[in-house]
């Protein structure tokens, strides 16, 4: 046991400056700060994200789950008050393995822009990042835009949704990289690993990269649309500093029926994989039936952003205490 903080005092001061800068930018852009509960009777059904569940002490409340992002509650606010941009900085919780960039509780900045699409939200995000780099007295990094679909096509000769697991495996073997056998029949996972190994890892260390035009199969909670080349793509993007994933932005899906069927799909996958069942957020579905304004939303990892700004190599360097001594 070690009672000492893992973050240096300098890192704590940088964290305070970052939060101050984020709040100031949001305020100057007329985005309203909101607060939503961390505990909910519903959970995130996404099979890739594991919600933490409160133990038997919560019996008086009924089962309660810690939020993995404030997304569902913030969308309910948007459905109720559809004319206002909103943001929240929240500590979120995930039952996750610890790593250089992972911890069970971390800080997330999430904001929604009414009337914007994913492209406008990318410009919005650039403006925020520019403000932050300025506040930290750092030279503004070069920005680059990459298309997920085009990158995959250039490397393999296939559009992502036409790829076969065996083609991906052969590509790994030909490049002398390790390919997990368990992956071949899971195309979504194949794509995740392929993109991480051959595309994201090649992003220049001193660049900010916006990766957009995801294949429709990876739409998650984003709308699908047609890009400039006439291909059907998911209207979402991710932001990377070097190869570090910082943020995930979506042109938000507003259709309650599609949302319900995606939740049900998640529940089925969880059942097949023997994962813990998670209760679907019926409140969100009801709110979506009422109507979500056309909007774009983004979630950004504040701790990772701080790692990038301060040149820290481990997430523990920017957290007062980590999973080991919290």
């Amino acid at each position: 046991m070690n009672w000492q903080p893992t973050a240096s005092f300098g890192a704590l001061k940088k964290a305070a400056l970052l939060r101050q800068t984020l709040h100031a930018w949001m305020h100057s852009h007329g985005i309203l700060e909101v607060w939503t509960p961390s505990l909910s009777s519903a959970a995130n059904t996404d099979p890739q994200v594991e919600s933490l569940c409160l133990g038997p002490q919560a019996e008086a409340l009924g089962s309660r789950y810690l939020h993995t992002s404030p997304e569902f509650a913030m969308k309910r606010l948007l459905c109720a008050y559809p004319d206002t941009d909103i943001y929240q900085m929240a500590t979120v919780f995930r039952a996750e393995v610890q790593g250089r960039y992972h911890t069970s509780q971390f800080n997330m900045l999430e904001w929604y822009r009414v009337g914007m699409d994913h492209k406008a939200l990318m410009r919005d995000t650039e403006s925020l990042l520019a403000q932050i780099w300025q506040a930290f007295d750092l030279p503004y990094p070069e920005m680059q835009h990459r298309s997920y679909c085009n990158e995959v096509f250039q490397l393999t000769g296939f559009w992502p949704d036409d790829l076969q697991g065996s083609t991906v495996r052969d590509y790994f073997v030909a490049n002398g990289r390790s390919f997990p056998q368990a992956l071949e029949h899971d195309l979504a996972a194949c794509l995740d690993l392929f993109v991480d190994e051959f595309i994201i890892s090649q992003f220049a260390a001193n660049h900010i990269t916006f990766l957009s035009e995801y294949p429709a199969s990876q739409a998650a909670l984003a709308r699908t649309g047609v890009n400039d080349d006439g291909r059907c793509v998911a209207e979402r993007f991710e932001v990377y500093a070097g190869s570090v994933e910082l943020a995930n932005g979506f042109h938000e899906l507003a259709d309650a029926n599609i949302q319900r069927s995606r939740f049900q799909g998640d529940v089925q996958i969880r059942k097949q994989r023997n994962q813990m069942p998670m209760p679907v957020d019926e409140n969100l579905l009801e709110a979506l039936e009422q109507g979500l304004p056309a909007c774009a939303g983004i979630a950004m990892g504040v701790d990772r952003l701080l790692m990038v700004l301060g040149g820290y190599s481990h997430i523990g360097d920017v957290l007062s205490f980590t999973d080991d001594n919290a």
Binding site: D46, Q48, E96, V97, Q98, G99, R100, Y101, H102, P180, D186, A188, A189, D192, L193, V195, D196, Q218, A220, E238, E245, N248, A299
Partner: peptide
Amino acid sequence: NEFVKPGKGQAF
């Protein structure tokens, strides 16, 4: 051992 996990994807 490095834990790799896209925010919206499979962990490795």
